[in-house]
Design a protein around this nucleic acid. Structure first.
Lengths: 235, 235
DNA sequence: CGCCTGGTTGACCACTATCAAGGTTAGTGG
DNA sequence: CCACTAACCTTGATAGTGGTCAACCAGGCG
């Protein structure tokens, strides 16, 4: 078990009152579990018997190619549901990035609950539709955006997440490594570093330490993110 | 209205008995609509008041960036549901690629139907989960696969589609243009052409005409698709 | 105190995009 | 019937974005 700066981040950022995250799906039928950084909740290919609801901390979902190339499909934060799939087995691996609290819900029990409880049905349906929407936006990012646009999109999204967690959206804490970010954005960690360095030099962001980014010009980042400034726009 | 080879393709390929495609969602509550190639079913940003079920033909879903860069998120075939979203407006545009028959279902009516009919609920949930799964695989493709791997993945998927439609999976018909394919795979149409040309020269595929591909070595394509042969593997 | 993980930066290069030209086919109008 | 046009497709030459390889730094932990 590691107690590094990730531990700190987890406490200073993303404060979620347990009652909020525990409302809705899994409130009464799940079992609380905790995990340490780098723990794997489940592997791609494991029988998909459980659904997890994140209470506190961050989870990283990813797929691998045989030669080790990795694509992170999502970072999950408090309130997110993990493992909702129609397949027999999980289609991705789920790793804890921080100390993590989840509610683990038996798949079979969730199905029963959904059958009888329209509110749970609605929650689950909305969660999946929301995930699908975000994933489609990620397709646009991976298929058509430049490196700067990808990083700007990521920072904008993290800013929104920070606001949802009660922050002002100007200070963002990154529980994940540069490699995690790169594997999420379809880049290499070197490119992520270079783009962050460029944004810092341009005064768009401040980087007091590698896991803490100040968004000095959020409007500029959002323009970059939407491709508003032309391809390869450097300033 | 155009009557080009697309028209032909639509009749020779993907033969679906109407009763099959009309089973399940929308069977009783929808209204049959027809569209011609290049018709737009709806634009990104339109109020998401209808869900469409494809009965016959192919639909192309895509998002655009302000400068015109396009990402195709999905090609829809007989049986697919289009427009299931939790958002107020459609998050993508839907264009007909061929002559098209759909069942149009009022969103409000589908919601009512789902409330009272567990079978419809199950169909819709499974449809969305299936779409999410495919989309996540597409993330891996766009984020981490090479041009050859992308094209091979696409051809493999089209082969599976052809088998679902009753073919042997060795002959694939492509109702979409090279630009559509490129915008789906995150490439340019020139790169798609070059990769297809290379596969043809290597004897992996035959291309009797631009919209008809013979998959001569499906096993090789599938190995390429999964990245089994190393990056940049040319033979 | 030294190792190991993660981060940063530089030099170089390759994959794929861009730019350009020419070919093919279907539909159109003389 | 046959040029003419407009998409669409294909291939070549060149260039650029981001990848690869490498070196070095910083911090945490054994």
């Amino acid at each position: 078990m590691r107690h590094t700066n990730r531990e700190t981040l987890e406490h200073t950022g993303a404060v979620v009152h347990p009652l909020n995250a525990e409302q809705g799906v899994g409130m009464a039928i799940g079992k609380v579990s905790t995990h340490s950084p780098k723990d794997t909740l489940f592997w791609e290919g494991d029988p998909a018997d459980d659904v997890f609801k994140v209470i506190r901390g961050t989870v990283c979902l990813y797929q691998l190619l045989p030669d080790g190339r990795r694509q992170v499909s999502r970072f999950c934060h408090a309130g997110d549901l993990i493992g909702l799939t129609a397949t027999e087995t999980y289609p991705y691996t789920a790793d804890a990035l921080t100390n993590l609290t989840t509610v683990r819900i038996r798949r079979s029990q969730l199905d029963t609950e959904m059958e009888g409880n329209p509110a749970v049905r609605g929650d689950v349906l909305r969660a999946i539709q929301d995930e699908l929407n975000r994933t489609q936006n990620q397709l646009l990012l991976l298929g058509r955006k430049t490196a700067v646009e990808r990083v700007a999109s990521f920072l904008s999204a993290m800013s929104e997440q920070a606001m949802r967690d009660g922050g002002d959206g100007r200070a963002v804490e990154l529980p994940m490594t540069r490699v995690d970010i790169a594997d999420y954005l379809g880049l290499t960690h070197e490119t992520v570093c270079r783009v962050l360095g460029q944004l810092k030099r341009d005064g768009v962001v401040g980087i007091p330490d590698p896991h803490r980014i100040e968004l000095r010009q959020l409007d500029v980042l959002e323009d970059f993110a939407e491709g508003e400034c032309g391809i390869g726009c450097a300033a």
